[in-house]
């Protein structure tokens, strides 16, 4: 006679409890491991700047782009500072990045930077400055690197740093001329506010910021290199015209 051993009640209870426990644990792990398996305490965000002319990727040669005024132009150099990056969370909390980031179109590693120690959550706005705030825009404030020294704004012209060096060439009757949009002096700083809809939960989040260089030539003022002064550094009013045009140069 074969005797079938029935599980005891206590064994049954333990088994059911274990199944429930593992099921719940497994579902928690599943829901929190979309990318990497572990929910970090802080998120980090890599911001990459993508330089374009309208919808095209920027190429530095030859003279091939057309601005709103019909000037055919090229970009030969592009250097600027991005600073005071602020991320606003849905609940109103703010993450602030104190760093001043140097961007040089010819230095690949400068085209992206990482913000660390971001509280996880959904973020609804990114703000940043092109340039450096007046407290820090003082000659000698930044660490003396070759790049920072090359961005120095002459002391005889108020000192501090170039916020932007945007240089290129344009043709008049097939003859190439140069232009240089150099922004500097503290009041030329440009503050950007761009709406976001981005959850930042992990340490490898990414955001691509699009920088459209054609925007510097238009809205609100069509800047015609054949008519308007192509070198603006000596003129506060021209700096302001280009500054105003630059307000919509960045987007997501």
């Amino acid at each position: 006679m074969k005797v079938e051993k029935k599980p005891s009640l206590s064994f049954l209870n333990w088994g059911i409890t274990a199944i429930i426990f593992f099921s719940i644990s497994f579902s928690i792990v599943l829901s929190s491991c979309e990318k990497t398996g572990v929910m970090p305490q802080f998120s980090s965000l890599k911001i990459s700047i993508h330089h374009v002319i309208d919808a095209e990727d920027l190429e530095l040669f030859p003279i091939q782009y057309m601005n709103e005024s019909g000037n055919t132009y090229s970009v030969t150099d592009l250097k600027y500072y991005v600073s005071s990056i602020k991320l606003t969370k849905q609940n109103g909390d703010i993450y602030f990045d104190q760093q001043i980031h140097y961007v040089d179109i010819k230095k690949t590693n400068s085209l992206s930077f990482v913000l660390d120690s971001i509280e996880p959550g959904k973020y609804i706005k990114i703000e940043f400055d092109l340039g450096i705030d007046s407290v820090r825009n003082q000659t000698g404030f930044l660490l003396n690197t070759v790049d920072n020294l090359n961005m120095a704004w002459p002391v005889s012209m108020e000192g501090g740093y170039h916020f932007l060096k945007f240089e290129g060439k344009y043709n008049i009757n097939s003859v190439p001329y140069g232009f240089a949009f150099h922004l500097g002096k503290s009041k030329a700083i440009i503050h950007y506010e761009i709406n976001l809809n981005k959850g930042l939960y992990y340490w490898n989040e990414e955001l691509i910021l699009k920088h459209d260089l054609n925007e510097w030539f238009k809205t609100p003022s069509n800047y015609n290199l054949e008519v308007d002064e192509p070198y603006i550094m000596n003129s506060d009013s021209l700096i302001n015209v280009i500054r105003q045009n630059g307000f919509d140069a960045f987007s997501l």
Binding site: P62, G168, G178
Partner: peptide, 9 residues
Amino acid sequence: AYTDPIMTK
């Protein structure tokens, strides 16, 4: 076409 923009104001 190769001259630096700074040189050709």
